[in-house]
Design a protein around this nucleic acid. Structure first.
Lengths: 141, 141
DNA sequence: TTGCGTGCAAAGGTTTTGCATGGCA
DNA sequence: TGCCATGCAAAACCTTTGCACGCAA
């Protein structure tokens, strides 16, 4: 897939996502914040461009909460993210990159035993990180 | 939380979910299938009862796909908790359920070594299934 | 009888789509 | 110039909610 034209809107959107690299944001937030900044961009444009960015691998899309919609987060550099797994805390939103022998073996196992080739750049394991789990009293799975 | 009244609608809904125990189904599917079976049940009723069943622990709710809505699956018995992983092919979109000892160990490994508690109802591993991979000539992720 | 459950339709929210216009290359 | 991108509004979707009525206990 090609990158397409470079427009003022896309520039602003990408810039904003990059600025929010440390956290994830929703499409609505992008629209609202660009609006406040004086650079109004249509909702449709944001969604269409986000889709493209996800396809191109520049942005990752998360479904954290049922209602609330999807969240998006910029991916610094997709080269080395190919080799490890990503854990996303559904509470605080923090993204952990984990890489160890055991996890390395998952790709191999799934490929050999289930005939499925995992794409680590698109895959995210959801759950609760240690601090959020402790914070919540640790009731539950 | 108490179980509430026993009604004909609830009986039908629960029966249907149990019958579909081997897979998960959406609220819309339940409505449609009960409708076809001649037992029309309102959408609101299905959603309200599903919520209750989830709270009571009889049913598990999955948020696997962005669009398509939530999926529900009956839980036989909280013990042998069929915590399984989901693989979704990015090409054909097919969803595979895998459940084997190796994969079972992932939750444990990640919890013990990385302090992260994976939520299988939200987690989906993305990649390419065997047939799609072959079809595309296997040029890699 | 009491109050929970149901159905319907309306409302809620996010995301997509159609179409005419605008802008990149 | 030709095609892609944008904006707007309407539409599509799933899910929730309000309200009056029905039914379980």
């Amino acid at each position: 897939m090609e990158k397409g034209y470079k427009t003022k809107q896309r520039e602003k959107i990408l810039e904003h996502i990059k600025d929010s690299m440390d956290k994830h944001i929703t499409a609505a937030e992008i629209v609202a914040q660009l609006n406040e900044a004086g650079t109004a961009v249509g909702v449709a444009t944001v969604y269409r461009y986000l889709d493209k960015l996800v396809e191109l691998g520049y942005v990752r899309k998360y479904i954290l909460d049922d209602k609330l919609g999807a969240c998006y987060q910029y991916v610094h550099n997709n080269e080395d993210c190919d080799e490890h797994f990503h854990l996303k805390c559904v509470e605080c939103g923090e993204l952990f990159h984990i890489s160890c022998d055991y996890m390395q073996g998952i790709d191999t196992h799934v490929l050999e035993h289930h005939g499925f080739r995992i794409d680590n750049t698109k895959t995210v394991l959801y759950g609760k990180c240690k601090s959020c789990h402790n914070k919540l009293g640790g009731e539950q799975v």
